[in-house]
Design a protein around this nucleic acid. Structure first.
Lengths: 209, 209
DNA sequence: ACGTGTGAACCGATTCACAGCA
DNA sequence: TGCTGTGAATCGGTTCACACGT
């Protein structure tokens, strides 16, 4: 319930990148690595890496570096990927079904356990090993499984209302793909993936480069 | 060629949100709106809105507000959405095909003109009105059409190499969906969409809330 | 000697608060 | 009067540089 303060927002995102780098080094058989080697693949400075870790403790050996395996486990613990997180996906349109099959979630122990839609043609089907349920069953299923995280991939006009419903069922965090601002209580975490806006920023940079 | 300095990175992203808000107000028949009304839908303060606009000029009337239509056109001009930008999509997998059909790009005058893949089963097909070409034709097509922007939705192991190729053909900006850091010249703009890492950050926040 | 860990300096961006103008 | 436009203050985060421990 208490919120530790003083840790930058971006640190969490970077930690997940460090994790990828450490896994890669581990696969290459590297046991010991310096901050320079770990950030070598990434676009992040060694100093930033050390600073980020310093918020959580000292995991390295001065004059030596970091034990790849140990640090990997520590970061997994910090991020919470040491246990499986169940998530639901709402909206099995084109994007939604692509996400159902997305392999990248596994590496962070994220598991889509069920998907919801309102299209009778989809309900009852199993796609990518995941059952598609009627959205009307969301309340029961989310409550029963104590799901805390939802991926929202529905059209913009439906997103606002649906997000409120999901929250009322116990969802605390939403990864939102609808290009609209969700209005939710402050204790609910929302992360927006806005692909059009992202591309647009690139256009803008191109234009003035 | 000259780069105007002093404009925050985030300002461009917010401008695209303002644009959406202005379109919405326009559709509702609103002619005049204050910074407070324009940002009402968004999660952005009126002061931030005014500050962002101030980098480009004074578009409002003191004591009154902004003309919705006029401001919309001004922002479109700033962002570059006043003309059509041709883009290519590389990698027509699940995610790639979902992006081919994504409607959100149109609002920013972004047009996917061709897609590339290396799967013979897909090459030559037309999906969502977009022709899928052999990746080996990318050089010719990109050069001929002077394409500057690419969406990269291929597996991580292919992304690094492909991104370099695209750049050698003249691509200057990449929207990258592969969970890997692309190593490219500094004058190339890359925007990463890392859905797994995004979700992971939500887990982290949940854990320590 | 070497690379970590970290306080301090720095930098960029947001917020504040009010002057300026319709 | 009301809302914009904007310097100034503030805030948060990154970078620097070096003390520290092995």
């Amino acid at each position: 319930m208490l919120k530790k303060i003083g840790i930058p927002q971006e640190t969490a995102r970077r930690l997940s990148l460090y994790l990828r780098s450490l896994r890669r080094l581990g696969q290459q058989g590297v046991d010991l690595a310096s901050s320079e080697e770990i950030t070598g693949f990434l676009n992040i400075s060694p100093a930033q890496f050390r600073k980020d870790l310093s918020y959580f403790g000292g995991f390295g050996k001065r004059g030596v570096g970091y034990e790849v395996k140990v640090l990997r486990k520590e970061i997994e613990k910090i991020l919470g990927t040491d246990v499986i997180w169940k998530i639901v996906l709402v909206g099995v349109g084109k994007l939604g079904s692509a996400l159902l099959g997305y392999r990248g979630f596994v590496e962070f122990n994220l598991q889509i356990v069920v998907a919801f839609d309102n299209d009778p043609g989809k309900i009852g089907k199993i796609w990518e090993g995941i059952k598609i349920e009627d959205i009307s069953k969301a309340k029961k299923i989310i409550k029963k499984n104590k799901i805390k995280i939802a991926i929202l991939s529905v059209p913009a006009q439906a997103a606002k209302e649906l997000s409120k419903e999901l929250v009322s069922y116990g969802v605390k965090a939403i990864l939102n793909f609808a290009p609209i601002n969700l209005v939710l209580p402050k204790n609910i975490f929302v992360s927006n993936v806005d692909m059009a806006s992202e591309l647009e920023s690139l256009v803008y940079k191109l234009k003035r480069s």
